[in-house]
Amino acid sequence: MKRLLKKEFKLTSLKLTYYFILFSLMSFIPGYPILLGAFFLTLGIFQSFENARLQNDTLFSLLLPVTKKDIVVSKYCYVMIVEAIFFLFCALITAFRMTVLKDAEIYKANAMMNANLAYLAYILIILALFNSIFLGGFFKTAYYVGKPFLLYGAASFIVVLIAEVIHHIPGLEMLNSQSKGLGIQAIVLALGIVVYIALTLCSMKASIKTFERIDI
């Protein structure tokens, strides 16, 4: 497994995917749907999958003395590592905004989403959708990447839309606050973590099964 993961980073992953981690800096932008940063990260990961497809990565992996299960798990691990780095940056920026910049006027008057604990939860939900819809869809053929990405794209934009609307509903304003309702935000974040883990694990299990069955 470790060797396959190394192969992902050495031969398959594009530098572009790492550059797209910098979209975490969007967490600083006021008056912008900052959740799109998570979508842009997954766009970068998608590029690496497209690159892998063009380089016959799946066939190469299948010819190695490794199990099909390990091939699937290593791909998921690769994606989760990139996502974890992105999430860590977003979390650090969110912490910075919620402490050092908590009284900044520019964020107090922000009609769009603020970086707070709920924001981190929404990021996890978008990443979970990527892992379940895109990765799960990819392993149905181990070749086609377009359709799964389109489906995931549609689902992620719905999440962005809901996340941007929900804090305008009376009584739910605290979901956009950087200082109030932190308890509720923490619960939302915990739910986000549960969704991420559950969807990713379910998708990985399903992908292992489908990848075992397909012909290359």
């Binding site: 050495k10 031969l11 380089q55 016959n56 990565d57 066939l59 190469f60």
Partner: peptide, 12 residues
């Protein structure tokens, strides 16, 4: 089928 055409032979 050629694998990893953009990498050097030693890298592969």
């Amino acid at each position: 089928n050629i694998f990893y055409p953009r990498n050097t032979l030693d890298e592969i």
